[in-house]
Design a binder for these strands. Structure first.
Lengths: 193, 193
DNA sequence: AAACATACTTACTAACTAGTAAGTAAACAA
DNA sequence: TTGTTTACTTACTAGTTAGTAAGTATGTTT
């Protein structure tokens, strides 16, 4: 058949979910095809190699983030609200679904084992997110909404590292580990010093 | 031959290094045996299943941490020094060797894909380290050496999450990402507020 | 000296891995 | 209505995976 289908999107959805649950190296074309009731060659049709699939997962995530951050509803927010919105998305997209990691965290953990083209894509994604966060922190400090010493970029690095790390460790320590950790992180940003 | 050998230790050393470089699911008995110039059945002789191997890696790491933390030279330290010593070990054992992760981070990232017995072992290791850190933070605040709000346990959670996260993200952002991030984390602990 | 344990090797297997070549059926374009 | 493109399926392969059964050489115990 040649009817317009959404198979490609479905493959991407499932592959991304599996990558965040188990890691990029821990799912196979067989997993994808059996779950979607197609043959593994159909997956190869849309994504000839696993490199292609991996690259596409990250590309799509980057587009998603760009779209989100350019939303009027986000752009209109004050810095503190932006940060809270980011954390909200982060929490919802990840911890709501059986301890799925964020793509950055999942990619970083398996980085040396990832296809090179995928590594490049991941670098772009990380830079974009970190850049956005640094801007929010800068603006937040200027407007006296967020408190921290040092550069906004360094603070953004701590912020994303803590979120990603806490998400991963919450697989060991449970959901409460995540909420405790992130609350502590958040409170530190509000304390006047 | 049946001469006393250190093959078992060598296997553990290599397996741990590979686990931290690539992840537990990303190395095979063939990798181990070819690197050590033995046959894969020899690895199975010492560690019948990969579950056994994984469990042994974590058990050994736990023993190593306990031994380290019970060292007189560590016990005699003041809280701030203890924390600095922990960070020193963390940095040396990981970033000095081509972006190897810590075992907690590597385990957390692949957690759902790990053998169950290994998961249990990882939980024990994480609890032990977190407990030790929480004590150090508590003592550090009492003695006015470390500054933070909230509970010592929460602060310890932020601390270890940030370290583990920064280590992972440094694979994407380079060594400077790690040093920037950890310096920012450290400075926050010293700021009076 | 005999029996046993240790530390392997040789030789194998069943299951799974990404990937391919060739065929097919439907939709679409000329 | 013929040709082309899309979206697959069927059928396959070469390589890798963890794991096993049986044999062997050495050292240790009795």
């Amino acid at each position: 058949m040649a009817t317009r289908t959404d198979t490609k999107e479905k493959i991407l959805d499932l592959a991304e979910a599996l990558m965040r649950e188990k890691g990029f190296g821990e799912f196979s074309y067989a997993h994808l095809s059996s779950e979607l009731n197609i043959k593994n060659a159909a997956v190869h049709y849309h994504f000839p190699s696993k490199d292609d699939l991996g690259k596409a997962i990250i590309e799509r995530a980057l587009q998603r983030f760009i779209t989100w951050s350019h939303l009027d509803s986000i752009k209109e927010m004050r810095p503190k609200e932006k940060l809270a919105a980011f954390m909200e998305v982060y929490y919802k997209q990840n911890l709501d679904y059986s301890f799925r990691l964020c793509l950055i965290g999942s990619s970083a953990a398996a980085f040396p084992a990832l296809p090179e083209r995928m590594q490049q894509e991941v670098k772009g994604l990380a830079e974009t997110i970190l850049g956005w966060l640094a801007q929010v922190f800068e603006e937040g400090r200027e407007k006296w909404e967020l408190n921290f010493n040092g550069s906004a970029k360094a603070m953004a690095s701590v912020f994303i590292s803590t979120l990603a790390g806490a998400l991963q460790l919450s697989r060991i320590g449970g959901k409460s580990f995540y909420t405790t950790t992130v609350e502590q992180l958040w409170n530190q940003l509000l304390v006047k010093h």
